[in-house]
């Protein structure tokens, strides 16, 4: 077994793919993380505390997983869709009744979208209650708020696409709220809808926002979000040691003041 592994991991083909050997030793385990585009999001070593499910509840990752599921199912849904008032609804019924696994695909996209909104909101609450927004992570908190707003935008723009009564009136009600804003309200509303009410222009715009602009922005800003997590010193869970030290310092100071 050892000889087979050695043979494979020393071959020129393996070495051209992965610039490291079989990861059963500290060096190769480090190289896995630093030479792989996906793994390099993580540091080579992580503190045990930041892996605790009780601490992070895995909510950030669940949001990212939901985004991944939505990207894949969304891409597949695009094969059976056209963003026109005449054809959108028809495509949805065809998808549900004639396309193999079409209904399942749409279900996963729908429930995945709700899951992502819930996960992102809970992730924010988790970060708040664990005090993980504190310095030096202030800016990453702001980035996170932007991502929350983008997530709501992605879900909202997707809501219109089936072009049924539910979609139409939800977007009508939802965008009428924008119209209440006294200064820019009517401008924002007409930019969003491309007209006085929900129609073909709105469907075109929502489609472009939903499949391209907002997911693209989420992908880009999520990269920034994760990069900042690394640059700001990983999850705040490992700050607990620092926290103890500061508390001790304060206690010492108070005593010397007395």
């Amino acid at each position: 077994m050892k000889r087979i592994i050695d043979f494979i991991t020393n071959s020129r083909v393996w070495r051209s793919f992965f610039r490291h050997g079989w990861p059963d030793n500290p060096l190769d385990r480090s190289l896995v993380m630093t030479t792989n585009v996906f793994f390099h999001l993580h540091s080579v070593k992580v503190s045990r505390k930041s892996l605790s499910a009780k601490y992070s509840l895995g909510l950030g990752l669940i949001s990212a997983i939901a985004f991944g599921v939505l990207s894949i199912t969304g891409l597949l849904l695009m094969f059976y869709y056209a963003p026109t008032v005449e054809r959108a609804y028809g495509y949805i019924t065809i998808l549900q009744t004639q396309v193999p696994f079409g209904q399942l695909l749409r279900n996963m996209h729908r429930w995945g979208a709700h899951l992502m909104v819930i996960a992102v909101v809970l992730h924010m609450a988790r970060v708040f209650y664990t005090g993980a927004y504190k310095p030096p992570r202030e800016f990453n908190w702001v980035v996170g708020v932007v991502l929350l707003i983008l997530t709501l935008g992605a879900s909202f723009t997707g809501y219109l696409l089936p072009w049924d009564q539910l979609a139409y009136w939800a977007i009508t009600v939802g965008t009428s709220v924008a119209g209440y804003e006294p200064i820019m309200g009517s401008v924002i509303k007409s930019i969003l809808l491309g007209g006085p009410e929900v129609g073909q222009e709105a469907l075109t715009r929502f489609y472009a926002l939903h499949v391209m602009l907002i997911p693209g922005a989420i992908l880009l800003i999520t990269s920034l979000h994760m990069w900042r997590v690394r640059k700001d010193g990983g999850l705040a869970a490992q700050d607990a040691a620092v926290h103890d030290a500061e508390e001790l310092a304060e206690a010492v100071e108070e005593q010397s003041n007395d």
Binding site: T130, A236, V242
Partner: peptide, 10 residues
């Protein structure tokens, strides 16, 4: 709230 106290503690 820009104190570092309690960062990473529920």
């Amino acid at each position: 709230d820009n104190s570092r106290l309690g960062s990473g503690v529920w």
